[in-house]
Design a binder for these strands. Structure first.
Length: 290
DNA sequence: TTGCAGGGGTCAA
DNA sequence: TTGACCCCTGCA
């Protein structure tokens, strides 16, 4: 992949393989990217915003710079990873997986900002996608930092910013009982009870155990946080969808979360999280397990 | 219009 | 292991 960096805030990427923004943004790992009328995707991570246009093997990023691309967007999109090796490893001797990869060939696992990922999946629990998007958007618009240019979106509020609020302030988000989880977790993070930047250096099990100390964070939210922030790609989040899908595609793989995660760890190891995304996307497209 | 079930979980008993 | 939790959406 080649990156051509212009001075006017535009980065042109050529020969971008294994990337389809629709598949990547709509496979359930993020909730803030939106498709605009001009065909661009508008999104953000941390305090950085960008517009993305995808045409064949070309990707154009607008509203950024060479430095920000190299330090923020390149790792965010996981563009420095070669997915072809992972794909051939996963599909070797596995027809189900080969088919799933064919359908979701452009999925990339993002490396999202850990706090934003944690907070978003805290909000996602027992909730539907449109409503998750609405709550996250209200949170950002109400408490994030606003971009200076017209059409730019608000950034995700920091843990410290949310920790400075109270439950009444957050009622505007209409998150219900999740408000308490968000507030308590934001306070715990800002007080250093769990240091998110240390999780990458921990083993997967240790990282997960640390997240589980947070009030409102269970196994599902912890695994989503570790997988979708790129901290531990072997995480295999199991929700009711995954449970149904796995039992439809791999009969006997497990009747509960623990059994399924054991199956996934044994079968896919460090690639378990990626395998899950291909299977999940495929199952949703084909309405398998519905 | 109203009522009800269910949603990509977690906590506490 | 089970019910409650907030609140929105879809459906009858």
């Amino acid at each position: 992949m080649n990156a051509i960096i212009n001075k006017d805030g535009i980065v042109n990427l050529e020969q971008v393989r294994d990337f389809d923004p629709e598949q990547t943004f709509l496979c359930g790992q993020c909730f803030r990217w939106e498709l605009l009328d001009d065909g661009c995707w508008n999104g953000s991570t941390g305090s950085h915003r960008v517009k993305l246009l995808h045409e064949g093997l070309k990707v154009t990023l607008k509203g950024t710079s060479g430095d920000v691309y190299n330090t923020v967007w390149l790792p965010y999109f996981d563009f420095d990873s070669d997915y072809s090796i992972a794909k051939s490893t996963l599909s070797d001797g596995d027809e189900v997986m080969a088919l799933a990869i064919e359908h979701g060939q452009g999925i990339r696992l993002l490396r999202q900002e850990p706090w934003e990922t944690l907070a978003t999946f805290l909000i996602s629990q027992n909730n539907g996608i449109p409503r998750i998007r609405k709550i996250v958007e209200t949170l950002c618009v109400s408490f994030g930092e606003r971009g200076t240019d017209p059409g730019q979106i608000s950034s995700f509020p920091s843990a410290e910013r949310i920790a400075s609020l109270n439950e009444d302030d957050l009622t505007v988000c209409r998150a219900g009982y999740r408000t308490e989880y968000l507030l308590r977790t934001a306070r715990a993070i800002s007080e250093g009870e769990v240091v998110l930047s240390e999780l990458a250096a921990c083993s997967y099990e240790e990282a997960r155990n640390r997240l589980l100390r947070l009030h409102g964070v269970g196994v599902k939210v912890a695994d989503c946080t570790l997988l979708f922030s790129g901290l531990h790609r072997e995480a295999f989040p199991v929700d009711r969808w995954v449970l149904r899908v796995m039992n439809a595609l791999y009969p006997g793989s497990g009747a509960d979360v623990f059994a399924l995660q054991t199956f996934a760890a044994k079968k896919w190891g460090k690639l378990a999280g990626l395998a899950q995304e291909y299977l999940f996307y495929y199952a949703r497209m084909k309405r398998i397990g519905v």
